[in-house]
Design a protein around this nucleic acid. Structure first.
Lengths: 143, 143
DNA sequence: AACCTAGATGCAAGTCTTTGCAGGTACGAG
DNA sequence: CTCGTACCTGCAAAGACTTGCATCTAGGTT
């Protein structure tokens, strides 16, 4: 896992400090294939750093997010989940408001929307971690 | 204000009951031009229904949202705000993650994205109340 | 290598929102 | 018009997340 080097480089570059807490928390985020809740990250990280506090986890998750190391998945109806941000595989998420299913979308159509918004409103859409809410095909068929 | 008839019709149609609390809460949402927080809705609604409870406000807002009467504006960093849903004027919101400014967007480009998603993934995007996060032109210029 | 300071952490208390439960009410059936 | 019950509400307590403050530490400076 190449977390270590990336952590140091990207945190420093964004003007944040490299601390053991942030290292352990970043590793915990990727545990079990990602998509962890804050509490799960906390439980996992505390095994390696017993004194760790939940408030620190929330602050570190925010910091790592702002440094571009992790993505937020605000699930609408469920808890917020966190995942490693992989710049070599940019994608958005489609979340079904009925069954909470998450599917990924490639960024082609999103890129086109972003370009249109930039042109018409000057707004820079966050393409890297975009989350869209609606109905998946199965739930749409029911309604 | 045509809240009354719409309230009765749309709540019933969605299988919910029409209660005085829901009526007062719906009116409170539209107070001051909309975009109210839950607390503001509570303060406003309690003037007409003194016994009203904050938990009821949250439950009613959820119910009214699911019945299609109000929109949610999850502001990312700030509190969630609520507004009347106007089917004759569908639009999305662009929220700046840096300064929390909200601007509206017409649905043209959003409609195109929705059509593309439907085609490629079978996913039905909620076009009526779409909220996109990014940087507004001023904050993008700073960064 | 020792020092300084902005920034990070731990703790505790605070907000915002949700949930469980007991009693109350809308509204369709009789 | 009255009844019955599924759905709502109020209350209190929990859950999720944030914030204020004192202490500590990463990492640049000397």
């Amino acid at each position: 896992m190449s977390c270590g080097p990336r952590l140091v480089q990207e945190l420093r570059q964004a003007g944040f400090r490299v601390t053991p807490q942030r290292g352990v928390i970043l590793e915990a985020v990727s545990h079990n294939g990602g998509h962890q809740t804050a509490q799960q990250v906390f439980d996992q990280a505390r095994r390696r750093l017993p004194g760790l506090n939940l408030a620190t986890v929330y602050r570190a998750l925010d910091t790592l997010h702002r440094a571009g190391l992790i993505d937020l998945l605000p699930n609408g109806s469920d808890l917020v989940r966190y995942g490693l941000h992989d710049p070599s595989h940019p994608h958005g998420h489609l979340i079904c408001r009925s069954c909470d299913d998450i599917q990924e979308i490639g960024s082609d159509s999103v890129q086109r929307l972003a370009a249109a918004l930039k042109r018409t409103s000057g707004f820079s859409l966050d393409v890297g971690h975009l989350t869209l809410v609606g109905l998946c095909d199965r739930c749409a068929a029911k309604a």
